[in-house]
């Protein structure tokens, strides 16, 4: 008999830790009453979830996308178009946005997954930019003016809250947990193994029965779906969207960076990265950036460079390597 599988134990522990974290975070509003701070919390949770989604395609499956703003924007626009033009509740809107984004991801992936390495990265950037340009010119969707989300009063049914940010906070927490949970389940599923195999060596994966192209498509669709949920949420949260505020390139970057900082292709990387990066960016922005002097950009850029050069495996990656060393 094999002794108890350390990996399965670790998986159970991870789940317990996650549940404890969620419970603790859920209590934070008891302490954090400041609206600005709550705002930062919501954004942190949202980016944790978004980066977790990005991590599925780029971290686990290894297809680095810098065009996820496209899916984020798709979620935001589908949600708000359905809400403002047809009165469809954002809950359905977000689901529809997720499906639209997954479809777009498949359509984008179909030609692009034949591209390797940098070719693929560039394609994601350019295609997202093309989407941005289309939204800027699409009159029905408000073009450059965007969409002002009409006020329909506080209600969970309409997913709209004017008096307090807390409902958004709890949704963001649930969203982050679900994204984490999806990743957790994937890790020990056939898809998860296939994706990592595709990332490490596509040719070897094919010879072992992995349908590489289909694997990439599945990762892209799932990643885009979750990202779009985030877009729909964000649209309701800020209650105004335009191409600049939901589809600009900086979103693509902001979805990638927490995972890069925390550890690409790791379960905890995106959450850890977001917990550090988002408050930090918000802080530098409010302290240094207000005057538009560029300090915030400099700090931010140095941080990005520092992460990339100093900790290529990310915080979680480095920690788990150290733990393996000391265990061995």
């Amino acid at each position: 008999m094999q002794d108890a599988d350390p990996r399965l134990n670790a998986r159970r522990n991870n789940l317990v830790i996650a549940c404890v974290c969620v419970a603790l975070i859920a209590c934070l509003p008891l302490v954090v009453k400041d609206v600005y701070a709550q705002n930062v919390l919501v954004l942190t949770l949202m980016y944790a979830a978004l980066s977790q989604s990005w991590n599925i395609l780029s971290g686990y499956c290894g297809q680095i996308s810098l065009g996820h703003a496209l899916y984020f924007g798709a979620g935001a626009y589908v949600t708000e178009l359905l809400f403002t033009k047809f009165g469809v509740a954002p809950w359905f809107g977000m689901a529809a946005g997720g499906l639209v984004a997954a479809t777009i991801a498949a359509a984008v992936g179909y030609p692009c997954f034949r591209l390797k390495g940098h070719y693929f990265v560039i394609a994601t950037i350019v295609i997202a930019e093309a989407g941005y340009l289309l939204m800027l010119n699409w009159d029905y969707a408000g073009a450059a003016m965007g969409i002002d989300v009409p006020v329909r009063g506080d209600s969970w049914a309409k997913f709209q809250f004017l008096r307090s940010k807390l409902p958004y906070f709890y949704f963001a927490l649930a969203f982050a947990f679900v994204a984490w949970l999806v990743t957790w389940m994937i890790e020990e599923s056939r898809w998860g193994y296939w994706w990592r195999a595709v990332k490490d060596n596509a040719e070897a994966a094919e010879s072992l029965g992995v349908e590489v192209f289909r694997s990439k498509m599945a990762a892209a669709a799932l990643s885009a779906f979750l990202t779009a949920i985030g877009g729909g949420f964000y649209a309701q949260f800020v209650s105004y969207i335009d191409p600049e505020s939901v589809m600009s390139f900086q979103f693509s970057l902001l979805m990638a960076l927490p995972a890069v900082l925390g550890g690409i292709g790791t379960l905890w990387g995106p959450a850890v990265g977001a917990a550090i990066l988002i408050p930090l960016t918000e802080l530098t922005r409010s302290f240094a950036g207000g005057s538009g002097k560029g300090f915030d950009l400099i700090i931010y850029g140095l941080l990005v460079m520092g992460i990339a050069l100093g900790r290529p495996e990310g915080i979680v990656g480095a920690l788990s390597r150290r733990m393996r060393r000391s265990a061995a």
Partner: peptide, 24 residues
């Protein structure tokens, strides 16, 4: 050799095994 370098040894082999089963 084309190992999946960032995966554990047993995980490398599991990739092959998954062609016959969906259960990890």
């Amino acid at each position: 050799v084309k190992s999946f370098e960032t995966m554990r040894v047993v995980e490398n082999v599991m990739v092959g095994a998954f062609v016959r089963t969906a259960s990890a």
